[in-house]
Design a protein around this nucleic acid. Structure first.
Lengths: 214, 214, 214, 214
DNA sequence: CGATAAGCGAGACGGTACGTCTAGTCTTCCG
DNA sequence: CGGAAGACTAGACGTACCGTCTCGCTTATCG
């Protein structure tokens, strides 16, 4: 039986104000400097908060990073117009734009076109370091991906996709290509690329290559 | 035109022996402990080398890592049997095996099935931190990928691939999916998966879905 | 006017225990090894203290040295018996003994009769390197010298010293001779020498050469 | 029986040119920076000489320092006019001026009136570190002091000094006071001070306080 | 209302690695 | 053999940062 009233916390409640200030300060600092050269001490100073107040909430710098990314990550809406090619393109373009923005984080805004993967790379490394951060990161992505996966499932149900294809594998190819370019090759991820990618992937799944059939 | 006289090195030449000992020690340590908990001081001690001798060669721990990975990375042979599906599967399986090995590097060998991306994640982060490391990493992968890309090109030339496909995009889908699973979702990358992946990708490129084994 | 409310210390107070352990360890090490071959790392290890804890207190090895000497330096009592010659002799002999002890610090106790100036020389060099260390050292000596200077002043007041002599110049001759032998010529500084020295100096100041013992 | 011909050195003779360039470079650097912040590497670079060439001549940085000081130290002439007070004053004033110059070595010339002892302090510390450097330094001073000591001896012979005084002790008081001020108290060492000092010291040795007798 | 519990600001602390600096030696090739 | 060049060993230095702890104080709820 679950308690009717909340468990009733004792002692002074946590300051929500502090939460906000910390995340704000951390975000600013991350953008200015990147994840290395980003010191918890400095976050604390900027947020006018004691270091303990930070560590009470996130046990590790890496944990703070996930929280930060989770907060920053904008919700990507998915429309289901029935045109799977189009819907996917829209969704992936949104993702791609977000990634591209992230890779500039912490760099000189002076242009210089550096192809680094920035924060995402650090996130990935953080996930590799602590199992629980890894879980959090995977959750983050899983939640984000439920929508496009559902999109693919529905498309298959209505016959727009070959029945023997796996939504997951399909999506791996799409998202994977984007992250691969972001993290490894450093190649640009523009909307042209997304279009071409979606075309390629769907072509193998029973969707005619060129939409204008007949 | 090559110079008639050699450039004439002056001063004591760098000890190739030291190079070897350093990389060996670093490799051992990396495997034992993982990239964090891996200290340059200790590498020096194990290699029986002064720390300066390491820093003279690689200005940063991150730089050493790239050199290390470059050396470790085993050459993956590509056979061109004419059966593009088969050749790709073989190649990618080799890669996938290598990645899987890497993700266990520096972990308890106790099985524990942790889904972390290990060294690759650190490599990616290192690439994100220093532009020159980024360049080195990209070169590493570029060199590695020339072979499979050539494979795809040849397949297209002999008509086994639709003429309007791009080898690069195709390859992004394949490699991307692997790295995506490694770094982000943590999903397993077995040979089944590779088979399915290759099947999917080629299906959209003019290769018949199931090789009709007559 | 003293403040009504105490200044109210904030944050964790410095551990006096650490202070003690650091100075103790440093002292031991200094005696065992001398100032070179004396590493902060090792002081930290012996004191079971983090290196930062040392550097928080003394920004430099040289600063630590002064603190150490200040602590070691034993108070030299001055009796004012009215016999200036005798009082000075006693005082200077105490100083000379201390100096002689210091010059053996960090040397093989094997006798070896080396004539080095040991720690005092290092102290002087440290003072020469950093202005603030210089100030500290000068304060150290100034405080130490107030007593004998007062002795001389009182002697002059009661007519035991010629009225046109300067206590400071007188004292320079006395202390100076000792430090000169310690630091430069390396000549021995026994009690005979001190006696002779005091005799010489006072002879020029209105004190009869040989105290006519009735 | 000594050989008629020199022992016949084999191989290439040492470049006297190098000697000069090294000492010159070292001197400059010492003046610019002081003894710490003075690196052998840099001396070599400035002198356009290999480090080995330096070490072949002086086994240690400290040894080089002594050589340097020995070379810099200007000869102080002593006239024996028969007026011991005057002769001593002249001699000591010359010494004092030299010391004063040295204490500014390696400092901002911007005034700032810092009272550090500079090079002499380092010399003293160097002497304390290596026995042979110590010997060299003591020789340096001994040679320098023979002249004024002889001066005192002659004065005593001709009855200008009390017969029971020791020249050495007398000189300790004089030189000692200067070095004491230089190295320890940092008090100024002007010609006024030297006059007063000489007056004091001689007063105790049978020389009338004020020269204008009657 | 006082007791109890927790949060908070401040800042010291343990720990640990980093990358730098310098001294002095060694190795190579050239005169 | 001397010299130029520069790599090498050795080892300390001082810095940076993380995550913990210890103060004194504040803000809650509980009895």
């Amino acid at each position: 039986m679950t308690p009717v009233t909340a468990p009733m916390r004792r002692g002074r409640p946590r300051s929500e104000d502090a939460d906000g200030r910390i995340l704000k300060a951390a975000h600013e600092l991350l953008v200015e400097r990147g994840y290395d050269r980003f010191a918890i001490d400095e976050v604390a100073a900027r947020a006018a908060v004691a270091k303990t107040t930070i560590y009470r909430r996130w046990p590790t710098k890496d944990h703070l990073l996930v929280a930060l990314v989770a907060k920053i990550q904008d919700e990507v809406a998915v429309a289901d117009t029935g045109d799977i090619r189009c819907d996917l393109s829209v969704y992936l373009t949104a993702i791609a734009t977000g990634l591209d923005r992230m890779r500039r984080v912490g760099r000189d805004a002076t242009g210089k076109e550096d192809r680094s993967a920035g924060v995402v790379a650090e996130l990935v490394a953080a996930a590799a370091r602590h199992p629980d951060v890894g879980d959090a990161v995977r959750n983050l992505f899983a939640r984000r991906n439920t929508l496009p996966l559902a999109l693919l499932d529905r498309a298959r149900e209505r016959g727009a996709l070959a029945p023997d294809t796996s939504s997951e594998v399909l999506f791996d190819q799409l998202a994977g290509a984007l992250y691969y370019r972001l993290l490894i090759t450093g190649a640009p991820i523009g909307s042209d690329y997304v279009e071409e990618l979606v075309g390629h992937v769907l072509a193998g799944s029973g969707v005619t290559r060129r939409p204008e059939r007949n």
